[in-house]
């Protein structure tokens, strides 16, 4: 149980970073932390105590296997995370070119 709690705390650390940090790059890092915590959570769901890799070979037909589905899902989710982070960083660089700063207190033209 404790490991799930630690995983959830990692998620909250990321959320705290997104809410409280003022630097665009730090916000992006916080989002990445949240993403890793969720990837970890999925792997934990699929883990079976003492299980082996889910490949059926001779002599291991009835062995204990870990659940392969969350692992497949996490592979997809990691690729999506890569795209998200890349796009965020690309936009952050363009913002730096336009505004000359990474500080979100100075990037607030839109309001109302």
């Amino acid at each position: 149980m404790i490991i799930y709690l630690l995983c959830f705390i990692l998620f909250l650390v990321g959320l705290y970073g997104v809410i409280s940090k003022r630097n665009l790059i730090k916000i992006i890092i916080s989002i990445a932390i949240m993403e890793y915590s969720i990837n970890l959570f999925f792997i934990l769901i699929g883990y079976v105590e003492g299980g082996t890799a889910p490949i059926i070979t001779k002599g291991f037909e009835n062995a204990k296997f870990v659940d392969p589905l969350p692992q497949a899902m996490i592979l997809t989710s990691i690729v999506i995370g890569l795209a998200t982070t890349a796009l965020l960083l690309a936009v952050a660089i363009r913002i730096y070119q336009k505004y000359g700063t990474f500080d979100i207190n100075k990037i607030k033209d839109l309001k109302g």
Binding site: V18, L24, I27, I31, T84, L87, L88, V91, A92, R94, I95, K98, I107, K108, D109, L110
Partner: peptide, 11 residues
Amino acid sequence: HQLEASFKYQV
């Protein structure tokens, strides 16, 4: 403005 709006939406 478009970059700022996009970043906000992305986060």
